[in-house]
């Protein structure tokens, strides 16, 4: 193990480490803690200049007023309407593409694979004008479906990279022996490979959920009005209205951040497995 386990260190060093941990954490999360505290601070505190002291009372009212007086609930709903179909679409498509690229040795295989990988790294701006145009022409501008279709296509690149490497790690003999038995290719995919892909599907689902939930660029490019606006772009619009009403901005920020944070905590192991695939299998 590296560094040397702290258990082997002297007692004072162990104690120092135990003390350093929470201190480092508080410093690291300082902006977050500040915002969380501000979100619970009554407006009167801010008006009185009490920015840093203990809140005079805990103002859950801030959250209630954000939900009551702003369309943030609607924005959240839109975010779900974009994120969930995208997760299903991108993960579903990449199960197929990943299988194709991992199992078959056709001629263009590596080329197709690297096109997916490279597409994943390009700047969004090179896609912006044509994708906006395409979405307008299809009558999908300002709709959640317009966002979903783009996100599905783009995330399929990343997901394919992941799925292909995952399937490559499965024992190929399983597929070989099924073929000898005369099982069709589709049946092999459906009944042999797909059940083994569960961990990869879970990991990618959490990851794509977070990526798409947090997307801001496409939410501003492909959506204009409130009715389809996801929470990231919505929060930015609200920030313009709540000039310097930091208790509201903070509460809104916490609300917008919560779904991916919950997702992360519930599915932590999958999330990290997703992020680090490739780092672990080297």
């Amino acid at each position: 193990m590296f560094p040397t386990p702290i258990q082997k260190a002297s007692a004072p060093a162990r104690l120092a480490y135990q003390i350093a941990l929470p201190i480092a954490l508080v410093i690291w999360l300082f902006p977050l803690i500040g915002v969380a505290v501000t979100s619970l601070r009554p407006a009167s505190d801010l008006a009185a200049g009490n920015y840093f002291g203990m809140p005079s009372s805990i103002a859950y009212e801030n959250y209630a007023s954000v939900f009551r007086d702003s369309p943030i609930g609607w924005y959240i709903l839109n975010s779900f309407k974009v994120t969930i179909p995208t997760v299903i679409g991108a993960v579903g498509l990449s199960c197929l593409t990943g299988f194709a690229l991992a199992v078959y040795g056709f001629r263009a295989n590596l080329w197709v694979f690297f096109a997916f990988v490279a597409g994943n790294f390009i700047p969004f701006q090179i896609l912006m004008v044509p994708v906006r145009e395409l979405t307008l022409k299809a009558g999908l501008y300002d709709t959640t479906l317009g966002l979903v279709l783009f996100h599905v296509a783009f995330q399929t690149g990343f997901c394919t990279l992941f799925m292909r490497n995952f399937i490559k790690g499965l024992p190929f003999a399983l597929i070989e022996s099924a073929r000898v038995e005369g099982v069709s290719e589709w049946q092999i995919f459906r009944h042999i490979v797909l059940p083994l892909m569960r961990p990869a599907i879970a990991a990618l689902s959490v990851l794509v959920f977070t990526f798409v939930w947090n997307d801001y660029f496409w939410a501003t490019v492909l959506v204009q009005g409130q009715h389809a606006m996801p929470v990231t772009a919505g929060l930015y619009a609200l920030n313009g209205q709540w000039v310097a009403a930091w208790h509201l901005v903070s509460a809104g920020s916490i609300i917008a951040a919560l779904p991916p944070v919950l997702m992360f905590f519930l599915m932590q192991r999958h999330f990290i497995a997703g992020l680090t695939l490739g780092a672990t299998k080297g």
Partner: peptide, 10 residues
């Protein structure tokens, strides 16, 4: 895990 919009506001 937090959106960059939220990080930016923070």
């Amino acid at each position: 895990v937090i959106s960059q919009v939220v990080v930016g506001l923070m």
